[in-house]
């Protein structure tokens, strides 16, 4: 993944639809009826959330599998 974190307060990603930058925001992750709040990067305009690869194939996958076995 070529998305670089510049600092804790910004990443170099631009929403093509809105031309807005991504800001850190608290969003809700949900799977199989379970919900948890999580801090992620979100388009200031349309609200689309960016999910980095290492999160998707790492922690997120682990949580998905754990919930599937519940």
């Amino acid at each position: 993944m070529s998305v670089k974190k510049q600092s804790e307060s910004a990443i170099t990603l631009v929403c093509c639809k809105c031309g807005e930058e991504f800001v850190k925001a608290s969003v809700t992750a949900s799977y199989l009826g379970a919900e948890f709040p999580i801090e992620l990067w979100k388009c200031h305009g349309c609200g689309v959330v960016y999910i980095p690869e290492e999160l998707a194939v790492g922690k997120m996958l682990k949580v998905e599998q754990a919930l599937e076995d519940k």
Binding site: A29, S30, Y31
Partner: peptide
């Protein structure tokens, strides 16, 4: 890559 969890 992919994931199954939904984020809003």
């Amino acid at each position: 890559y992919s994931h199954r969890m939904q984020v809003r």
